[in-house]
Amino acid sequence: MSDTHSTPQLDPCRLGVAFIDAQLLSLCTHAGLLADWIENGQRAPDFSALARLVEHRRAHPEAHAHSEDGMPMKEEPQDALQPWPTLPDASQRMTFALRVPCLNAILAVADFFDVHRLSSSRTPEVQFLMRLRDAAVNGERFRIGADEYVPHAAYGGLIIDKTLDGAALFGDGAETGFIAFGDVVGLLGYLRKLLKSMQAVISSGDAG
């Protein structure tokens, strides 16, 4: 007897497309809002405006202030934001503005691929993503042992192999990085197309 109340299984490819779409929108929105500052060093974001946004909340954290072990505290800890830096060089501004959003997108999409068992694919672009993830969690540098097996990992002419051991993932204005913002956007776009094609194959198989 079938269970009519069971939750339908969602297609991981469809979920992945929606997830990557959200990551791309976030990346491009962030970059677009900061584009003038990145290129010209003008009109840096005003952190004081954040206070107004933080006030838009329904929770009352002052009534739920606890330490890490769950014990109540006398007052809520204050997490002061770091001041917006003065960076005279456009490449430094680029690194400051886009490095963390790119890392977040890489980590999030790679985690999605892991959870849904897509990371084992030997598709070069998938292995490329997973190697970027490994670098992201290792001080943003590639750590590839001399005896380590490295599946073919490539995207758009970029290849990750043992010669990259110790190389920086992103540049910092002084050191050239392996990838840049546009590479992350391009890779996510490619992976989106890959998931769409996998979804089409699965759908056609169901139809048959």
Rank of each mutant, 00 (worst) to 15 (best):
L195R: 05
A105K: 07
I144S: 04
D161N: 10
D114W: 14
H60R: 11
Y149F: 12
H56Y: 12
T29S: 09
H30P: 00
F19I: 06
R57L: 00
E55H: 11
A180D: 14
A51T: 09
G166H: 09
F170V: 06
A44M: 04
F170W: 07
A200H: 10
A136S: 09
A18P: 03
L10G: 08
I106C: 03
R93S: 04
P45H: 08
T163Q: 13
L191W: 04
A105I: 09
E125W: 09
L25C: 12
Q199L: 15
D183R: 10
P101I: 03
M71T: 05
L118R: 12
L25A: 15
D111A: 08
I179W: 09
R133P: 00
F113C: 04
I160G: 02
L27I: 00
R58L: 13
L10K: 02
G177H: 11
V185Y: 00
N40R: 13
S26R: 14
A135M: 00
C102I: 02
S120F: 14
A167C: 02
L53Q: 08
P12T: 04
L10M: 13
T4F: 15
I144Q: 07
G16L: 02
V150A: 09
R43H: 15
D161G: 07
R192E: 00
F170C: 13
L25I: 11
N138E: 06
M94L: 09
D79P: 00
L164K: 15
R43M: 11
F128I: 05
P85Q: 05
V184W: 02
D134L: 03
E76D: 06
S119C: 05
H5C: 12
M94Q: 09
V150M: 06
H30Y: 07
T7C: 13
E76G: 02
W37M: 13
P83M: 01
I106G: 07
V126Q: 07
K196H: 06
F47M: 07
D3R: 01
F113W: 12
L195Y: 07
E125V: 15
P12W: 08
R99N: 07
D134T: 04
V137G: 03
E68C: 13
Q92V: 08
R43W: 14
D183K: 06
M1I: 15
L10R: 06
D165I: 06
G157W: 11
P88N: 11
H66E: 03
L50A: 05
R131W: 09
L53Y: 08
G205H: 14
T123I: 13
P77E: 00
P101F: 02
N138H: 14
E68W: 10
L87G: 06
G156N: 15
S120K: 15
P61V: 06
R99S: 10
D36P: 01
L50G: 03
G182C: 05
T4W: 15
L188E: 01
D183W: 04
E75N: 14
N138F: 05
A31W: 03
L169N: 09
P8L: 07
K74M: 05
S204Q: 08
L107Y: 08
E125L: 10
R117N: 06
R141V: 08
H5Q: 14
R143D: 04
I144G: 08
D3M: 04
T163R: 15
V150N: 02
W84C: 03
S6Q: 13
G177L: 10
A110N: 10
R99K: 05
L132D: 01
I20G: 04
